[in-house]
Write a protein that binds this DNA or RNA. Structure first.
Lengths: 332, 332
DNA sequence: ATGAAAGCGCTAACAG
DNA sequence: CTGTTAGCGCTTTCAT
């Protein structure tokens, strides 16, 4: 049978109150007593029961993360960072794979109440008003990762999407490309879609390059949309020499599409992506891209959540990004 | 303030025992009473507290999964299946990313005791004796996914690795390839490495093809090992026309390595992989491979765990595999 | 510095 | 059919 606080108390010859004190590092006992208690704990292999702690209103050391798709490399890399940081401070993480559907998300939010989780992280997902209402009832701190809340109710941690897109485009321009296309996300996606388009436009403008009619095509961040978008954009804008894709997946889709129709990358077409997932190293040629440090975002995000939980006031955080040069872009 | 069972009882004008009964669908109340209680529950938005349930020795509807690497596509796809199935029956899943290190794993096992999880799943990881000892103390059911326990203490769900490798090789042979190489996992990996090598050898043997000295090279299932193994095997066994890689990642690494040195796939070299991760569709040419339905494994595995939890006796389960024909293999 | 006891929300006898 | 009550393991007054 599992040892309880009572067993420890008996073995150490003290009361359970005292055991609880040393457990929680509260003041009020002799060093001598502490030693006995610690000894008993070790002997018995005692582990405090988190459910019991939760019941008396204490933290049960678990946080939940809402994740839109459990098999996406970007989300799972963030999750990796969260989990690592959580593990370091003995917290568990419950995953809630929402599949980006509202009903499921709401059901999870209900579940989290039953579970008394201490905090919540939301990855790459738009936070709808109905979620907020529900979260408010939960009365737990929230941090957003790789997404944001326009109403500023929650803090977030993400890159500067516009700047990242700007830098990617500028990189192409610096390599003497003048006819540049963009395979973008949806313009209606205000969080990552639109800002990246704006960054692209801003870079062209800054360098006095005109924005051609067909230079931007909207995909959905997926490999397959990248693949098909390339064929379209090549048809509509045949003189282009370089492409900025708003995600690595789309970049690689575009790269493979190009090669499938005999266009050599980077010789005839330069491609730069955005994300720097593992994929960027698993294609040929290896993809030049702008890195978002997803792992770090997860890690930092979790620590922000902990700070929030301990009552600190925090501001949102913008992560740096940087260009990783590999082989898919070449000067002309 | 959150509603408790007391609030519900008061509102419905019954005792908490009765509320508990309808909550747990136990017999012993008039339909009439039930209706009132249900109404009160709905009005109050009451959600039973899982910590309190756990404390009285009931399930708290959470299971834990030990996962070796949170950013690997195969593991996260399994996790996806687990999570989906768990969600359907209102269970939560706690992730324990072990990074395949024993110390971390042991620490998790400790944590799980504090959390009173109801069950444990282990993905793609060898179950060391020290883990077993600890797990025994937890007194919870375990199911293994995509791995196995040679001592048969735990049931598992996985494919028949030897047969899958056999079929992949046979597929190559059926396409008239006679000089076939294999990029394998480590022979010392008794769970997936060795059986796949055996399957490869068995297929050659069955077809009266000799096993050449340099026809098998060992990688570590990663993209990069596939990339470098290809270069070596091509050098040592230049007459080969086809390769079976023991994982998609290695297959794609090999494919890209081949293309990087001017070898055309599938025209000059056929490649077949094993796994059918998303990657198989994100390379060029798309990879022919043998599918393991990881999602389904996770899903079925969770249901097996539930059966175990409800006292059923179960046997391990072998999942079917099948060849997915895409474009990386061509007859000669 | 330490112990006794109440109570967190729930389930499960035991009464009625 | 329904209510009362004793815990589950822990934290936290309140005494001592």
């Amino acid at each position: 049978m599992k040892a309880t606080i009572k067993d420890v108390a008996k073995k150490a010859g003290v009361s359970i109150a005292t055991v609880s004190r040393v457990l929680n590092e509260l003041p009020g006992y002799q060093p001598e007593t502490k030693k006995k208690v610690l000894q008993a704990i070790a002997d018995l292999g005692y582990k405090p029961d988190q459910s019991a702690r939760a019941l008396v209103g204490k933290s049960n050391k678990t946080i939940a993360v809402l994740i839109p798709k459990l098999s996406s490399l970007v989300a799972t890399t963030i999750l990796y960072g969260i989990e690592d940081a959580a593990h370091l401070i003995d917290h568990s993480v419950i995953i809630c794979n929402t599949d980006n559907i509202g009903f499921r998300t709401m059901k999870y939010l209900d579940l989290l109440q039953s579970k008394r989780v201490d905090g919540l992280m939301i990855i790459s997902e738009f936070v709808k008003t109905e979620y907020k209402k529900r979260i408010k009832e939960l009365e737990i701190p929230v941090v957003l990762i790789s997404t944001k809340d326009f109403e500023q109710e929650y803090i977030h941690i993400k890159i500067d999407d516009k700047k990242a897109a700007f830098d990617a485009t500028q990189y192409l321009i610096d390599h003497n490309h003048r006819e540049i296309g963009m395979i973008a996300g949806a313009e209606s996606d205000l969080i990552t879609g639109l800002p990246r388009i704006e960054g692209f436009k801003a870079a062209l403008h800054k360098n006095n390059l005109p924005l051609k009619e067909h230079s931007i095509i909207q995909g959905d961040f997926s490999y397959h949309s990248g693949f098909s978008c390339l064929k379209t954009i090549i048809k509509n804008y045949p003189q282009l020499t370089a492409i900025f894709a708003a995600s690595d997946e789309m970049a690689i889709g575009a790269m493979n599409a190009a090669q499938s129709i005999g266009i050599k990358v980077p010789e005839q077409l330069a491609i730069i992506g955005l994300d720097n997932t593992q994929l960027a190293n698993m294609c040929f040629p290896p993809l030049t891209t702008v890195e978002q440090d997803f792992y770090q975002m997860g890690w930092d995000g979790l620590n922000m959540l902990m700070d929030l939980m301990s009552g600190k006031k925090l501001k949102s955080k913008i992560m740096p990004h940087k260009i990783i040069e590999r082989a898919s872009v070449k000067s002309i």
